[in-house]
Design a protein around this nucleic acid. Structure first.
Length: 324
DNA sequence: CGTGTTTGACCCGCGC
DNA sequence: GCGCGGGTCAAACACG
């Protein structure tokens, strides 16, 4: 697949978070002129729970409800109810991670207005074929390569005789200076690759929980370097570590809930004006490991006060918006 | 020492 | 068959 845009073959949802100043700039300068938002677009507060359920291992019904909730068609030829903001190449906002692999050419690919919004199920023709490739690899193992028997045995035992189902995927776009957005789960990075036509590498993460095969890819949009594209693959087979402590309030106010709800909220351009993007809050350390360290080292405590405040502001706003 | 990251090598599918 | 690009593996390394 030559397409390096995950939104062309994954279940995709556009999210944008911005700080107030930047959204004003966007709207004043670009958004309204070059891209349209569906005026009838509705954003029920159930987004919050729906997305969380998806991330916590919900059924495909959740995917459907998500897609419908976001006004997306289930077929691939999306009518693009929501269009992403225009690409703004911001070269001073490049990430600093090392790139071992040089990218041959960084030429700009013409942006189609719907390029980031189209969605498809995994059964669509445009999906990845990585699972079939794995199966084939395992078949080759059966042929008897003595070299890597030990590591191949486990794979064989895992997949032999059954065709592994393709994992459902969905992707988020988030305006953030942080690449790896905290979602409440613990992830282990297992790879990084240069992306064709993009100066930004793609990172591969796997859920650290045993028996959980959920993966996620994180990459920065080459069209707008301030946008982080996170693609989840699979569904967690365990509870979110951030919500495991049995404290409903803590769970509600956990960074995981905060971030996902923030992303959902920020899908609507009008809401973008209401909230700070947590990740561009100058009071927050711009540090990938901030939330990870927080969860690992201070799991008994709630988020900092400003996070409480932000989240409560958002919830209050949501309630206000949906009151008759 | 346990956990997570980095990074070169490798595999696979696909197009030519 | 060959090269390319995406995805994964695993040894080496970093860090608390």
């Amino acid at each position: 697949m030559s397409d390096n845009n995950p939104f062309h073959h994954d279940y995709a949802f556009p999210f944008f978070g911005e700080n107030p100043s930047s959204i004003y700039d966007h709207q004043a300068n670009n958004t309204q002129n070059h891209h349209h938002y569906n005026q009838d677009f509705d954003y029920p507060s159930s987004y919050m729970s729906t997305l969380t359920e998806c991330l916590h291992g919900g059924s495909m019904d959740h995917y459907n409800s998500l897609s419908s909730a976001f006004g997306m068609n289930n077929n691939c030829s999306s009518s693009s109810e929501v269009v992403c903001p225009p690409p703004q190449i911001d070269h001073h906002n490049h990430q600093e991670s090392s790139r071992k692999n040089s990218v041959d050419d960084h030429h700009q690919i013409p942006l189609t207005p719907n390029s980031l919004i189209s969605s498809s199920s995994n059964s669509e023709a445009g999906c990845h074929e990585e699972d079939s490739s794995k199966i084939k690899k395992d078949d080759q193992c059966e042929d008897g390569d003595d070299d890597d028997k030990s590591k191949q045995v486990s794979k064989l035992a895992k997949k032999k005789g059954e065709k592994k189902q393709k994992e459902p995927r969905f992707a988020f776009m988030t305006k953030s200076e942080i690449d790896n957005l905290e979602d409440g789960y613990r992830w282990r990075k297992y790879g990084q690759k240069a992306v064709k036509n993009s100066p930004f590498p793609r990172s591969y993460y796997r859920c650290t929980s045993q028996k959980c095969s959920v993966k996620k890819r994180v990459e920065r949009s080459y069209e707008d370097p301030s946008i982080v594209i996170t693609t989840y693959e699979g569904q967690h087979s365990h509870h979110c570590p951030a919500t495991l402590r049995g404290n409903a309030a803590a769970a509600l106010l956990s960074p995981a809930s905060f971030l996902s709800s923030q992303q959902q909220l920020l899908i609507h351009p009008h809401d973008q004006q209401l909230f700070y993007n947590n990740n561009t809050n100058p009071n927050l350390p711009i540090n990938n490991s901030f939330y990870n360290n927080y969860h690992q080292q201070q799991p008994q405590l709630g988020p900092p006060d400003y996070q409480y405040g932000l989240f409560q502001d958002m919830v209050a706003s949501l309630i206000h918006k949906h009151e008759p």
